[in-house]
Nucleic acid binder design. Structure first.
Length: 236
RNA sequence: CUACCACAACCUG
């Protein structure tokens, strides 16, 4: 069962959903992780409807198999991508019934779902109710403000997470803040943010470097963009 | 064994 599960997950990550499905269907035995992995494979490859389909099948076919935290947090981003909150609300309801709605990962996924569906106040309410916010919680709310184009709010939250909660921003935080910097071609903010991440030793991985190249380019500073570009270890 | 936040460019709408 374990190898089967691992294979399903692996094929999913490689984008070979057909193989993931083939392994899954041929498994003589399945546990909760098998179903979660299959849902996840579909989700990673954009097959939203089949996510819900598999989920339904799991509830119908497998007696006594109860969704766990992983099931919920796998399903929620799919709901978010659907645009409407209907499915999200259903999953939220299940989380409450199953007593998982206070789990940090579930809360994080829920607020992200609400914000992506345009229900910002719902999202913020959940954010406020989380007592032990982690970096993902903050990244989600910052991403939400940043998508709205709320520059002030984004920076305020960015400061607050560090002052109030002493939570260290990570590379994803930076990637979330960056778009509001260059929406007005604000070279200065991009530079500041860049300096900030270097100073704080935020792991300058490939993604982050690429984001800065793009940001500088959008601000019209080809020189800075080149500078980052040539400093990279890996270029794709 | 699975699972929460981020992910280029281009084109079209």
């Amino acid at each position: 069962v374990f190898v089967g599960n691992a294979l399903v997950a692996m094929y999913g990550k490689q984008g070979i959903v057909v193989d993931a499905l083939r392994v899954f269907e041929n498994m003589p035995e399945r546990n909760l992780v098998s179903w979660n992995s299959m849902i996840c494979s579909f989700s990673e490859n954009g097959f939203s409807n089949e996510c819900f389909g598999v989920f339904r099948r799991m509830l119908l076919e497998e007696e006594g198999l109860v969704p766990d935290v992983a099931t919920l947090v796998t399903l929620l981003p799919v709901c978010a991508g659907e645009g409407g909150i209907d499915m999200g609300a259903v999953v939220h309801g299940m989380a409450v019934k199953l007593g998982h709605c206070d789990e940090l990962m579930v809360s994080n996924a829920l607020m992200d779902t609400y914000s992506k569906c345009g229900l910002w106040s719902e999202s913020e309410i959940i954010f406020c109710m989380i007592k032990n916010k982690n970096v993902v919680s903050w990244n989600s709310i910052i991403g939400s403000y940043s998508r709205e184009g709320n520059k002030r709010g984004t920076f305020e939250l960015f400061m607050r997470m560090q002052m109030e909660e002493k939570i260290r921003p990570n590379e994803i935080t930076i990637l979330n803040v960056l778009p509001v910097c260059f929406e007005n071609s604000e070279m200065m903010s991009v530079k500041e943010l860049h300096c900030y991440s270097l100073r704080n030793g935020i792991q300058s991985d490939e993604m982050l470097a690429n984001a800065f190249v793009a940001a500088y380019a959008k601000c019209g500073s080809t020189r800075s963009a080149e500078h980052v570009f040539y400093g990279m270890e890996v270029r794709t």
